[in-house]
């Protein structure tokens, strides 16, 4: 129960909650376009969180990191992915039948969040306000991202897991070190960018090769069919 005379709005926790919500937005999407849009929102939330860290710590470099996050991950990467995959047929972009149904994976993700909080409870430096708020979130992001990658069949949609993991790592690093050196960060960003492009291009190839879809297979795939 919250005492009615609580202090000012707990910006840290709320921002971490918003980030969490945005992450769930990505997890529960089936379509490539949908999760890309949701990923954009998640990244915006992430860059907001980064800006908050910058404000709290007063390190100006983190502002740059926040801006970079916004530009590269919310603008460039989605554009690149869109362009690279624009010729792909709908079939290759839509998660018809993940290994675990969306309803169950939503609940599993929630359990992973609980697990992340449970694990980080034991971490000794809970006195650090920023770390206390964001460490569990970043861990959740890692878990959820991995789970998403494991769970998806459509190759293109596995990238979503990768991107979530990456966002989790970024948050982890920023929260833990209060801003790694800017150069390294830029390097990381470019790394990711290249990774995304390569994997997307690879996906395109793959789905071109396996594009001859069998109707009977599709029938079996639909997850709301009995039998």
């Amino acid at each position: 129960m919250i005492p009615t005379d609580a202090p000012q709005i707990d910006i840290l926790t709320i921002s971490s909650a918003v980030l969490m919500i945005a992450t769930f937005g990505v997890v529960v999407r089936r379509g490539f376009m949908d999760w890309l849009r949701a990923y954009r929102y998640q990244t915006m939330a992430l860059s907001g969180v980064t800006a908050i860290i910058a404000y709290m710590t007063g390190i100006w470099e983190i502002y740059i990191a926040a801006a970079l996050t916004l530009i590269i991950k919310a603008v460039v990467i989605p554009r690149v992915l869109l362009r690279v995959t624009s010729q792909l047929k709908f079939v290759a972009r839509y998660e018809l039948n993940p290994y675990i149904s969306v309803r169950l994976s939503a609940i599993i993700s929630a359990l992973l969040v609980a697990l992340a909080y449970f694990l980080t409870q034991q971490v000794p430096f809970r006195s650090d306000q920023i770390l206390r708020a964001y460490l569990p979130v970043s861990l959740s992001l890692l878990f959820i991202g991995m789970f998403t990658m494991v769970n998806r069949r459509v190759a293109l949609n596995q990238i979503v897991g990768l991107l979530i993991i990456e966002n989790g790592l970024f948050l982890f690093a920023t929260a833990l070190t209060h801003g790694v050196s800017l150069i390294i960060e830029i390097g990381v960003f470019i790394d990711i960018l290249v990774g995304v492009i390569i994997s997307a291009a690879l996906m395109t190839r793959i789905s071109h090769t396996f594009d001859n879809l069998n109707v009977d297979n599709l029938e079996h795939l639909r997850d709301d069919k009995e039998e």
Binding site: R29, R30, G31, M33, D34, F90, Y94, L96, V215, L218, E219, L221, R222
Partner: peptide, 19 residues
């Protein structure tokens, strides 16, 4: 319509006519 996944999801694999 094509970006509306709730719309596409209803249509996909619904009422399949076997060749």
């Amino acid at each position: 319509l094509k970006t509306k996944s709730s719309f596409i999801d209803r249509l996909r694999n619904t009422g399949v006519i076997p060749r």
